[in-house]
Design a protein around this nucleic acid. Structure first.
Lengths: 101, 101
DNA sequence: TTGCTATATTGGCATTTCTCGCTATATGGA
DNA sequence: TCCATATAGCGAGAAATGCCAATATAGCAA
């Protein structure tokens, strides 16, 4: 199933969500305090939250929204949930947008 | 003054506004009933409205929103207001988005 | 001036989004 | 088992958005 351009735009029409996706682009630099390699497994919610300055529940909601839009994926390892970019879908979204507008 | 990526995303986070911008891309084909060349001067509000199936006030509002986001420009000629794409800003928005996410 | 047409603005209501605090659930350790 | 930690989900109130009808305004022509 491919990405839906309207869902993706809705997810990105929020400065905090846009910034989260942007920061995940260079996650090693932007989230250096994480033990496991963020490029490999993703970044966990509490570390993303720290940077964003929003409540835990809001960040959890935003990450779910990005995931619903298929811009990120998540995996649970132990007590943590790691989110990382879905590069293929992000590229497809950009291409679709470019072709459309 | 360059385009603001969050303003542009807000303007495009609406299927109707997105469709308007997309249709203006090939305005000769999409709005053939207009007398004056749409590529040259733009498309007038009432013709855009006809296609969109929304009320006149809503379309006027949406076009103003696209203009505030600097994705389109407008010019008044006689009683008509013609809207057309701002290609430079649209390209810049796409580039900014591509670089950011 | 009067009146017609095209567009913009205003007011309003319903829906959605933003964001929080609180609570629930899952995981792993003592 | 009990507790601490990480995350998700559930109200809830404020703000923004979607969309309309109604009204205002601007341009033009008679």
């Amino acid at each position: 199933m491919s990405i839906d351009i309207n869902d993706a735009l809705k997810a990105l029409d929020n400065p905090a969500r846009l910034a989260i996706l942007a920061k995940l682009k260079d996650s090693r630099k932007n989230y250096p305090e994480q033990e496991v390699d963020p490029e490999q497994v993703g970044v966990c919610v509490s570390i993303i939250q720290e940077r964003a300055g929003l409540s835990q529940s809001t960040i959890s909601l935003y990450l779910t929204a990005l995931q619903r839009a298929k811009l990120v994926t998540s995996q649970r390892i132990g007590p943590w949930t790691y989110y990382k970019r879905d590069e293929a879908n992000i590229a497809e979204f950009l291409k679709q947008l470019q072709d459309l507008i």
